[in-house]
């Protein structure tokens, strides 16, 4: 090894190290664009889609009212299921054998019952129990009302969806709780923290990282599952569309209107998911690959 070779090699040192050109991306991109253009062209030129009718109904008050009902139903059912799901998941892990078994039985029953069956049962619950009473067990009733005035269509829909989704949420939360390293709980215990506080401030916030993706999945599912509620004549989005096309026979455009709004709702949820995930990722978040490349480049240049 002489000085001369070292100098020569120094002269040949590369100035930049560049990423490989990814031609595959361009080819795939071009193909996708072509397919999308073809699909759109066929849909737009095919008169059977009747896009003018789509335009007429997409912002009509009946549809928007149905949309509002769907959102309302999904949000209430989901909020209640999340609360019930957390309680069930905690019970499922409890050292109290009775509570543990109760939670397990609940999850079994309500995952096993098809939602459609559950909704129809609830809708017809008045046939089983004509009145709902509040009273002393084995004693006199203090208060009594007709079941149909309590379990209305909306009531049956919310109760049914919540009972059903809570069972799934319970398992999602349990998976999240289990995913948190046991050492976190031990460290909190060693600091003398009570178990409720440990759950709320140490375990659950870290479990959320594993919980948010499947929970969003569940939420998207609930938004679409609300359409099942149309079987008990709840005027949600799909039912509103059905009411119109039963009258006008414009079936396809109205189904497309409903699909359009389900797409929009799901897109909103996906955006929300991104931000919620970011929040619960704090403390672990790395930076994106692109941002990292840029930072490295700047740092190198500054160093030169």
């Amino acid at each position: 090894m002489t000085d001369a070779t070292a100098v020569k090699m120094g002269a040949d040192l590369p100035v930049r190290i560049r990423a490989r050109k990814r031609y595959g991306n361009w080819v795939a991109g071009a193909m996708v664009v072509l397919v999308v253009v073809l699909v759109f062209r066929s849909a737009l030129t095919n008169e059977n889609f009747s896009w003018p009718a789509f335009g007429r109904y997409v912002f009509s008050s009946t549809i928007l009212l149905g949309l509002a009902r769907t959102v309302e139903l999904a949000v209430i059912a989901m909020a209640l299921s999340i609360i019930a799901g957390i309680v069930l998941a905690v019970l499922r892990q409890s050292s109290n054998g009775v509570l543990n078994a109760v939670s397990g039985a609940y999850i079994w029953v309500f995952r096993a019952t098809p939602l459609l069956v559950l909704l129809l049962l609830l809708y017809n619950v008045a046939a089983l129990y004509p009145t709902v009473s509040l009273g002393i067990p084995f004693g006199p009733d203090l208060f009594s009302v007709a079941t149909n005035s309590v379990v209305t269509v909306a009531g049956a829909a919310i109760i049914g969806l919540t009972l059903h989704e809570a069972a799934y949420c319970a398992e999602i939360f349990r998976a999240g709780l289990v995913s948190v390293e046991h050492g976190q709980r031990e460290a909190a215990e060693a600091l003398g923290m009570p178990s409720g506080l440990i759950l709320r401030r140490i375990v659950l916030p870290q479990a959320m990282r594993a919980i948010v993706p499947p929970l969003t999945n569940q939420f998207v599912n609930v938004v679409k599952t609300t359409s099942i509620v149309s079987v008990i004549s709840m005027s949600e989005l799909l039912h509103s569309a059905q009411i119109i096309y039963a009258r006008t026979y414009e079936t396809i455009p109205l189904l497309l209107v409903a699909t359009f709004w389900y797409l929009v709702l799901t897109a909103l949820l996906t955006v929300a998911q991104h931000y919620v995930e970011q929040y619960f990722n704090r403390g672990r978040a790395g930076i994106s690959a692109a941002a990292s490349r840029k930072l490295s480049r700047l740092a190198l240049e500054a160093g030169r």
Binding site: E181, G183, Q184, E186, A187, A188, E189, A190, L191, G192, M193, P194, S195, I202, P205, Q206, F280, R282, G283, R284
Partner: peptide, 24 residues
Amino acid sequence: QRQRRQARQHIGMVFQQFNLFGHL
């Protein structure tokens, strides 16, 4: 649980894997 917590407060514990709360 309460009794156990009160007694534990006065005993500090350091773990092999640190067990710092990662989200804080």
